[in-house]
Design a protein around this nucleic acid. Sequence first.
RNA 1: GCCCUCGUGGUGAAAUUGGUAGACACAAAGGACUUAAAAUCCUUGCCCUUUUGGGAGUGCCAGUUCGAGUCUGGCCGAGGGCACCA
Length: 841
Amino acid sequence: MERLNFQVIEKKWQSIFDKEKLYSNKSSKKFYCLEMFPYPSGKIHMGHVRNYTIGDVIARFKFMNGFNVLHPMGWDAFGLPAENAAKENNLHPKKWTEKNISEMKRQLKLMGLSIDWDLEVSTCDENYYKHQQEIFIDFYNEGLVKRKENYVNWDPVEQTVLANEQVINGKGWRSGAVVERKKLSQWFFDITKFSNDLLKGLDELDSWPEKVKIMQKNWIGKSIGCEINFKIEGENNNINVFTTRPDTIFGASFLAVSVDHPICAKFLKNEKYNNFKSECLKVGTTEEALANAEKIGYDTNLFASHPFIKGKKIPIYVANFILMDYGTGAIFGCPAHDQRDLDFAKKYNLQITEVVSDNPNKPKNFSVLSEAFVDNGTLINSDFLNGLTVEQAKAKIIKEIEKLKIGKKKITFRLKDWGISRQRYWGCPIPMIHLKNGSIVPVDKSELPIKLPEDIDLNKGGNPLENHKSWKYTIHKKTGNPAVRETDTLDTFVDSSWYFLRFCSPMTKTEPFDIKKVNYWMPVDQYIGGIEHAILHLLYSRFFMRALKKNNKKIKDNEPFKGLFTQGMVCHETYKDQKGKWLSPLEVEKNSDGALQKISDKTKVIVGPSESMSKSKKNVVDPESMIKSYGADSVRWFILSDSPPEKDIQWSNQGVNAAYKFLQKIYNLCYEVNKGSEKNSNLDKSFNLKMNSYVNKITKCINNFNLNVVVANVYEIYNLFQSHLSKEVSNTCMKNNLIKLMKILVPFTPHIAYECLEMLGAKEIKTWPKVDTKLIKQEKIKIAIQINGKTRDVIEIDKGISQISVEKLCKNNNKVKNKILSKPVHKVIFVKDRIINFIMK
RNA sequence: GCCCUCGUGGUGAAAUUGGUAGACACAAAGGACUUAAAAUCCUUGCCCUUUUGGGAGUGCCAGUUCGAGUCUGGCCGAGGGCACCA
């Protein structure tokens, strides 16, 4: 037995990967393979290992299939943790980040990835963010940047504003603190300008997971309805409402507006109203509050006139459940057919009229029913709409409304503008200056980059840029007048919205990217990353492509990512001691009974469910220590083997150990075959046929991301070799097929695969084994013989054999012949190469 | 509440898309080798039968079909996303 010394082999091949770039190909067909770049937190985790292993398999596989592959890596290097770490360790964010990057880069190299490190990009590098500032100015000039005073989500722990997408259940996505509402002047990207286009674009993304597309679709939230103007009685003023159910207009019994609606301005002197308003704000945005929030209203004592029922007056309320930033901030309430309206109407004793019915002969009494009727039905109590379906009624009433010029058909989106201001230091400075006259203008492009000052005081609280006098005060280049710099920095999601473009030409100094290179490499053919970015990052990047295209007509694509694959998480069992304290796997051992105990005091360990690895639950396994014990190939092999890549995987040390043992066996097999002597070759042909069939299967599996199935097939191939070692297969045949197997292994376990290829004296190691379609046709196949749908035997036959011949074989088959011959056969179902089924009475 | 996904052995999972259910692996039990352990290898893995065999079986109930894990309808259960969006 030849011992596999993975330390030596991995080191050897990694230095070759570095020097020779075994992965770059000068071919006309391009393939851009990209994994989501990591945040440099300090150490890689198993999630990275899984992500980058999957990406590496695809990149190496595509290269071996003749593609010119772009496979870069970089760092999402701005962000708050650097500031927190800086405070804790008294280390400048820049230094901290740089240190982490070099450490993580070293760790990634241990994995043997086929990454072209010459293209490395870091978003905190001024050579990167300089171009981002340029893009910002371009967007500004294009009218895609807005400044708005708005309620913002204020994270009191991080002392910053969060985007809507960063608020999860009313809490900050990172800090977990309850988010407060605060009014601030903010910068926004006008993503809503592209709402419809972003929605439509989803249709062409046929290599994206359906799930992600649905999430984005819901997020964009298109709804078709109409606006209707209600005249306020006794005033020369209107309230414009938005509704998706104009068909229920005859059931309208009240209007409700948001507390922020302009019409409310006149109540601000009213104490009762102010009490009501503060009551509304108090409800806040916590999950609990939202779930239990009672619908409350303020009666304005104003009335609107119903546009279709002469003389009907409708009370106007201010209600806490109406949002100013959706629709027009005002609705009409139709209690019988909307749950919220029903709740509200009952509370304030408002009229409830049924206008849509599933049974027009049997009127419902909604003032006693607790559920509104929201399904389709027939219109009743609705004048000229009576008898129509909901769809018909909608069309008719919109026509009528437009005819009377009191409203129009309207499409509304749920998507809101992207707030990009962050009151933080460690981010890309926004290249704008505030002039004395109150106007805000971009800096001159020649002044870029607006560099982050390095001499900052992080312990003062708030935004260090705000406190940095010599940085903050500047002059307006054009006029020479004094000016104040914008002290907000950009949301880090801006950084990651175009890095994939920068990778196409990271050395370009004068522009964000070289348009020729971008149009060659883009779109990303395969993007791989976590599902957690299904909305944020992916939607923003799709917006950026469109915005850049608008600005720079030469960009040919709308969509940045042609193919998307979202991998599952890496999980591990959780452990607690008797006191309920979390334990790391390193603090736990097996006792003689096989039960788990705490190493320190031998007390029993409580094993919890397997959950995604997290520091808080201590169920993390350090990739580097695993690589040290088992080798990178074993870690890669295991993380691909147990579960389909899109599903969660359970890390287990037994599993990675099994992977290690298997690679040892593979290495041994190569060693034995390599020094073996020539034998008879009677079985060569069938061996070749089988191997060829496996290559075919595996090639298809990789293209479908069924990487765990590839692993299973490789195990089968190994078993095939083992069972044929003592049979009449020539050594040459074995060796040739073993070379094929090693080539298959290159994308998965590159170090050992190349080592074995070298050992076996393979002349050519850069191409994927070819599938011989002629051989596929010659394969033997197994066909099931069924009687009345039940399988009675399985026989091996040549492909394509006719029904008559198969029937003949059955009549001579010991296991089934008595059964077929003893009774009359009613019918025979025959599917070529699949099955024969005898139907007996 | 709305939307989506998924239910297959002790475990992770395969199943050529309607055609041999449980490939492949982990764990377990028994055995071989060994002074012993580790490592390695073999066998077993639902029910009935000594065997040859036979039967049940993919969350549950029905349906379509020669044939259903796969298709249809209805339940039950788990996970995820959104959430006062008019």
